Simulated assay, not measured.
Amino acid sequence: MIEISDESLIQRIAAGDRAAMRILHGRHATRTLRFLIRLVRDESQAEDLMSDVYFDVWRQASRFEGRSSVSTWILSIARFKALSALRRRAPRPLEPEIAEAVEDDADTPEVVAQKASKADAMRRCLGRLSLEHREVIDLVYYHERSVEEASEILQIPAATVKTRMFYARKKLAELLAAAGVDRGWP
């Protein structure tokens, strides 16, 4: 079977082709959902946002100009939806039982050694980065986007992407060192 390009699918979606929408969704849904989960840190909310993202893809397919790849366009819609949701999210005070259960960051070396694997430590440290640094790391390393594509998705200059990458890697190295994780991976 000949694989249809994403751009062709978008044209067919713009004409109302539901089968094309199912194919496009199948290609990009997992990556989009993971991106949303990393940004909003709530799987349920990320799933709700996924529906909004692909509804917008359906509605806006006729306006796709092809200045970027379809996957970049979808991730930029997802990012906009996630940031909008984060702005609407009101900070909730912690309930006393939950506040008491919050782990102290000042773990002893023995506790650090007993914690989960290096991959878990990496996820924890990534979660401690600022939103701007997390999204750059996520796009470049997890979604394998170029600096230019990340720049387009984030709607910032490429130089800013590079600067954020530099500081994100520096901060991540500090966090990993503080967590007792060396730079070498087995």
Rank of each mutant, 00 (worst) to 15 (best):
L139G: 01
E110Q: 06
A29H: 13
A179E: 14
A159V: 13
A101G: 03
P109E: 11
F80E: 12
D6F: 04
L154C: 15
D56I: 09
Y167A: 01
A119T: 09
E47C: 03
L83G: 01
A14N: 04
I77E: 01
I4C: 04
P93E: 14
V147L: 05
H25M: 14
R22F: 06
F80N: 13
D120R: 09
K115R: 14
R89T: 15
E144F: 04
R31M: 13
G184I: 07
K162C: 00
A168P: 02
A85I: 06
S84M: 10
S51Q: 15
A82P: 03
W58R: 02
S44I: 12
R67E: 13
A85T: 09
V57Q: 02
D182R: 09
A159S: 13
I23L: 14
I37S: 03
W73N: 06
D138H: 00
R145Q: 12
V40G: 07
D104N: 14
W185V: 12
A178Q: 12
D42S: 13
Q45T: 15
D107W: 10
L172F: 06
P91H: 11
Q114E: 14
I2W: 05
L36G: 04
L75N: 00
R38A: 09
S8P: 00
Q114H: 12
R92V: 08
G180P: 04
A116F: 06
P109F: 05
I137N: 00
D120S: 12
D42F: 08
A19C: 04
S151A: 14
S69Y: 07
R88A: 14
